[in-house]
Write a protein that binds this DNA or RNA. Structure first.
Lengths: 204, 204
DNA sequence: TCCAAGATTGACTCATCCGTCAGTTATCGA
DNA sequence: TCGATAACTGACGGATGAGTCAATCTTGGA
């Protein structure tokens, strides 16, 4: 071998650029030349690392998911109460800062592509499984120490995940109604409802 | 005038075809020729009624929304209890039958297109406003007759709508986990939680 | 029967863009 | 210094597909 491989760095560089283009223009309008320009290289270089445009976008989708999961991993290992962890998790997952918003844009595109692409459906399946299990884990912890109500934890996790997804989608689309504070209020309300706060009794 | 206009029928015919193509292939892969073929006419005929492809897809999105709202209108006017109406509404809105699933596919595409298109964002804004107000209305009715808990009805409506959106999206993408019965279970659980069922007291 | 205007056709133009490839450059070890 | 190979360039071929348009057909009314 005459040169040490720069493949890992280059691929990352290209995938980051691809995600930025997807965020800004969507896959519909994504051109290989856009990605190349953003990554500061020629289209030939992009094709040197990714055979086809499809391979490129799929890799970008996967990269985006992987990074998002990794970013959340930190929260899971915190030594705070389950309820706190749940709040932190949900909060970090709602589209707030630029990084999370960008990731959300790419997720949205991934889902819609997945409607017509079995490979992406499989990718989503794997990621969502992990996603859900992270939340389920927290809920189980909360049930173990008696701070979260004793209901099917999978059902509760589904509720939390779906709620966040639905809120986020409308926020992303730019609904004036769905502001950041509104999203947080709705989520807080749900977490309160599934939390056991000492002394509080709700008739419902 | 030498002939009575067939414009209304033709436009509807084309928009229906466009929605079918969007459902089957997505807007990404939608070709004007696909729509023409499905509507049983030439590409020229499609362009006779819709100047550009963009005008066509936007009209299709709007048509899809309008029809969906119209289909739900029936439920609102039923003389059943608010809780029942809420259940019926949510149930009809989850992707179950082919018609609702098709509509969902088109909605999903609309949202993602809207991320990069102000016109579609405005369309979504209008529709969602109506959507939310339908649910809010039901909830207010329920609060008036004491069958739904006394919380901010807009917050409760946001919760219901977002939950359904999130669940549906995962179901559409084909998650094995998110089955029809699971979606219904999660929604039932939420509606139970916001309903006041006589004699039941929950500690939470 | 014939006209006027709406409706429709489909071949064609023109622009776009993916993927290729022959050629060039950079960087290592020997 | 000199291969050897990885890394990279960018012009080009070829395919695709939106939108145009001249020609044709259809229909209701005069």
């Amino acid at each position: 071998m005459a040169r040490p491989s720069v493949e890992a760095q280059r691929r990352e560089q290209i995938l980051r650029a691809a995600c930025e283009v997807i965020r800004d223009k969507g896959i519909n309008a994504l051109r290989v030349s856009d990605v190349a320009a953003r990554a500061g290289m020629s289209t030939g270089a992009v094709h040197y690392y990714f055979e086809t445009k499809r391979a490129l976008t799929h890799a970008a989708f996967e990269w985006n998911f992987t990074r998002s999961l990794a970013r959340r991993e930190v929260i899971l290992t915190r030594r705070t109460s389950p309820s706190e962890r749940l709040r932190a998790f949900v909060s970090s997952y709602l589209p707030g800062d630029d990084e999370t918003t960008a990731a959300w844009h790419v997720w949205a595109e991934t889902w819609v592509e997945a409607l017509h692409d079995a490979e992406l459906r499989a990718l989503n399946e794997r990621v969502y499984e992990e996603w859900r299990s992270m939340i389920t884990e927290i809920i189980r912890d909360g049930q173990a120490d008696g701070t979260i109500i004793d209901r099917d934890p999978v059902l509760l996790a589904d509720t939390v995940v779906s709620l966040v997804d639905g809120l986020s989608m409308q926020a992303l689309v730019g609904s004036r109604h769905m502001t950041a504070s509104r999203m947080h209020a709705v989520c807080e309300h749900l977490i309160d409802a599934i939390s056991v706060s000492s002394g509080r009794v709700k008739v419902s």
